[in-house]
């Protein structure tokens, strides 16, 4: 940036500097901002937790406020898998396959006791947590969790996404410079 652009812009009528007129960002952060506010969940509803998942999308809790209302039943269009319910061994290959079909980058929320750890089903027929087959980012306890807890999970995924984009910054991980600060 040249010296002349650092000072007040001539004839602009105020004393704002160039940096205050123009918002600059890194491409990774810009993309992350877009992704964060349009997470499309893949509702992997396998048991009763799916009812609370539906409640999260319904008007009372309205996850559209976080941009995650577009539940996609096609894994090709989704980037956040919400595993809601008991993953039985018979269903596990299908869950794994659907996860593999989702395009990168993708996130996984294990919702409820069963998906997180197997819950009370310490059984030969139940996967003891969906993280045995796919990587899980956020675990939500509860049987089932409240829709609020699920919204917390979605917000945490948004935060993870943001952190990951910012961690790529060479000048220090996770540091956010205020807009308009001297660069």
């Amino acid at each position: 940036m040249s010296e002349t652009l650092q000072g007040p812009i001539e004839g602009a009528g105020d004393d704002r500097t160039f940096d205050q007129w123009v918002m600059t960002t890194r491409l990774a952060e810009y993309v992350a901002w877009g992704r964060k506010n349009s997470l499309w969940p893949m509702p992997m509803g396998l048991a009763c937790c799916a009812i609370e998942l539906m409640a999260m999308v319904a008007p009372r809790y309205d996850v559209a406020r976080f941009g995650a209302e577009a539940l996609r039943f096609s894994p090709r269009q989704a980037d956040l898998m919400i595993v809601a319910g008991t993953v039985v061994k018979k269903m596990a290959p299908a869950v794994k396959r659907i996860f593999d079909q989702m395009p990168d980058p993708k996130w996984v929320i294990a919702m409820g006791a069963c998906a997180s750890s197997g819950g009370m089903f310490r059984s030969y027929s139940v996967t003891q947590g969906v993280d045995e087959i796919i990587p899980v980012d956020v675990y939500i306890p509860g049987c089932p969790p409240r829709p609020e807890a699920l919204i917390e999970g979605v917000m945490r995924v948004q935060q993870l996404l943001d952190d990951r984009a910012r961690a790529r910054r060479p000048s220090g991980a996770g540091r956010r410079e205020p807009v308009g600060a001297g660069r």
Binding site: S117, Y139, P141, A149, E152, R156
Partner: peptide
């Protein structure tokens, strides 16, 4: 308490 979430099994 109903809105606690975690990032790993050990944390929970």
């Amino acid at each position: 308490e109903s809105t606690t979430i975690g990032l790993s099994r050990a944390e929970m």
